[in-house]
């Protein structure tokens, strides 16, 4: 059962124009843009999907949608400044126009998780593609499964969406944050995010885990979850590669037999996937 209907476009290479209606600085290199279409309704999406954002004159890049579908307010996309295009997006002024193509890819499947316990593990900017999923799970009426949100960050001032973390905790999620390096004001956990796993009690047989972050972090987190008894197939990860079209034609996002834009970015884990992401230079 689908959460929302996805509307295909006739030529998926043609962007729609969206205006930046708000801009929020999250950390020293992360910005969240609020986007509204210049005409017509905003695109419908499921948490975990991504859009191809165009900074006109600079280029295009795949960015996860970080808001929840159906939430009030404009669609949000959180961008980390790591290159020419993301820099242009991070510095885009309110009122400027960007191009949006999408949504593309597979989603976290949150609409199937009403009764599961859900353990969400986010590393660094990996919280952005999970944000919409977490809000959906926390806010959905009638859900019975407990939601755990485990966040790992390099330093306390790199933690993204602190207001959401507090809000989710108020609304019933178990939220734990850890950093690699603390500072004088930090009274929370220190250590890699996998060290938080033994501190929550969840039933591995009834749990689905959603994991997103740098690939090293995802590999270790999956191992940590598996060692606690979560079946590999109940763990979902979000992968990333070079993307230039979003629709399986440009050939750049290949990972062995998979096309990340079409078969991912969200994947249920498996032995085969583990072998794939363990292979060097695949």
């Amino acid at each position: 059962m689908l959460l929302t209907e996805v509307e295909p476009s006739v030529n998926p290479l043609m962007p729609a124009t969206y205006r930046v209606v708000a801009r929020r600085v999250e950390t020293d290199d992360v910005v969240t843009l609020s986007l509204e279409p210049t005409s017509g309704p905003s695109l419908l999406f499921r948490p975990g999907q991504f859009n191809m954002l165009t900074a006109f004159g600079v280029g295009e890049v795949a960015i996860s949608i970080s808001s929840a579908p159906g939430a009030p307010g404009p669609m949000e996309q959180t961008v980390r400044d790591v290159g020419a295009v993301t820099h242009a997006l991070c510095t885009a002024k309110v009122g400027s126009t960007v191009g949006v193509r999408g949504p593309f890819g597979t989603d976290w499947g949150v609409d199937e998780l009403d009764d599961s316990e859900v353990v969400i593990v986010a590393g660094g900017i990996g919280l952005a593609p999970l944000r919409g999923a977490i809000s959906y799970l926390v806010d959905k009426p009638g859900r019975t499964g407990q939601v755990y949100v485990l966040v790992g960050s390099r330093e306390p001032d790199q933690i993204t969406f602190p207001d959401d973390l507090e809000r989710w905790e108020r609304d019933g999620a178990v939220v734990k944050v850890t950093v690699d390096n603390g500072d004088a004001h930090w009274h929370g956990a220190i250590g890699v995010v996998t060290t938080l796993l033994p501190t929550i009690s969840f039933d591995p047989a009834r749990t689905v885990a959603l994991v997103c972050g740098p690939e090293i972090m995802m590999r270790f987190t999956v191992r940590g979850l598996a060692d606690l008894g979560v079946p590999l197939g109940s763990i979902r990860v979000s992968l990333e590669r070079n993307m230039q079209c979003g629709v399986g034609w440009c050939g750049h996002c290949q990972l062995g037999p998979l096309l990340i834009c079409r078969d991912g970015p969200v994947f249920a884990y498996s032995e085969q996937l583990e072998r794939l992401i363990s292979e060097r230079e695949r």
Binding site: P214, E215, I216, R241, I277, R280, E281
Partner: peptide, 10 residues
């Protein structure tokens, strides 16, 4: 070492 796609092994 640890390998990560797009990086020389760390």
């Amino acid at each position: 070492e640890v390998h990560e796609p797009g990086r020389v092994p760390l």
